[in-house]
Nucleic acid binder design. Structure first.
Lengths: 203, 203
DNA sequence: ACCTGAACACCGTTCAAGT
DNA sequence: ACCTGAACACCGTTCAAGT
């Protein structure tokens, strides 16, 4: 049975879950697929191209089902939540996606979808682009940190090493919070700003 | 003349500027410092510890001079702008700082400073922590992307490879904008959200 | 205390050659 | 078309031994 491009991506995501992004090597992936490391290069020109394909696979779930109807801000929030969930599906998923400025199918589809939410609501295209990217920075940053905490529990300890101070309480509040609640809070800060600038005023 | 810890950091930042984060290797750094690669390990336990120290050095400028007096939101914006400027001072500076969850002196000082701005304004400590982290995600995400564009001009082209669509216009608006203006815009979206939740109401 | 020399156990990538 | 085998040019890190 021959190896297909999609099989390589699937295997790579399996390896990602067990060994993490830093443990993902072409040799280990070859072993997992029953192939020499060099053989992978027939399917992908290099490791970065494989990572791009992995990122696009991770992001597939975001556009898999149609969005619920509703006001633009609720729809944009849903996209953000879907993206977070998709990133959390695989170990280091956020880092994988953040590291690739891809224009592969699912990534493009998701971007189009989000842009249309804003432009349909009357936002000019250029400002909509700025809003979209700002939102992406937040989602990726938040989720990268979430997964960093998951990986190494030492995150919580580091704060305790600090003398009792403003910052140590900030770390505490971040570490101890329900991640989803904290995510929604920060997203809402941003969306408030957008709502204020929305041509139709507050929604 | 013997090598001091600070000299290693300075050399590493020089190498960072010329070779980028991916080109920063212990062997090249050794050569630059006139030392074997292994010799560096007397000063730093490993490469990550060195990267932490580099991050803290990069971030030094943020707290170097006192903030201008004024309302809390203007002060927080100034911190964000200072951080962006500091990150832009060195090639891949944003990636270096984003990759390290450090509690080194300057990082702590900066965190304390930002937290105090919020708590002095009456924000409860836990929400202030959430706001602080959300802001950091935005600043780092924005600046990482800024530096990625600087590095490889192909970013602009990728958009042109796309068929004319909502997303291609989004990419255009991002690539062609004045980075500082776009940064300020997104930061203001977030600060608007914070202002709405500020105990004292809009400032 | 501070560094050398040399090794260990890896990497990503290439490419003739096989089937 | 799809992959093997083997090499090339690197990595980070360790550690006895030197000064």
């Amino acid at each position: 049975m021959q190896l297909k491009r999609a099989d390589v991506v699937t295997g790579a995501l399996t390896l990602l879950d067990t060994d993490g992004l830093d443990g993902l090597t072409m040799r280990k992936l070859g072993a997992l697929l029953g192939v020499q490391a060099g053989g992978i290069y027939w399917h992908f020109t290099n490791k970065d191209a494989l990572l791009d394909a992995m990122a696009d696979r991770i992001v597939e779930a975001v556009t898999a089902t149609p969005l619920t109807e509703g006001p633009w801000d609720a729809r944009l929030a849903e996209v953000a939540h879907r993206l977070r969930r998709a990133l959390l599906t695989h170990r280091d998923g956020a880092r994988v996606v953040a590291g690739t400025y891809v224009l592969e199918p699912n990534t493009v589809r998701g971007g189009e979808q989000a842009m249309r939410i804003l432009t349909d609501a009357g936002f000019p295209a250029d400002r909509a682009g700025w809003v979209l990217f700002a939102t992406m920075y937040y989602v990726l940053g938040h989720t990268i940190e979430e997964q960093a905490q998951q990986a190494q529990g030492d995150w919580a300890q580091r704060g305790s090493g600090l003398p009792d101070s403003e910052l140590s309480r900030a770390l505490d509040s971040v570490v101890r919070a329900d991640p989803e609640e904290r995510f929604a809070y920060g997203l809402d800060l941003l969306l408030d700003g957008v709502r204020l600038r929305f041509p139709g005023g507050r929604s």
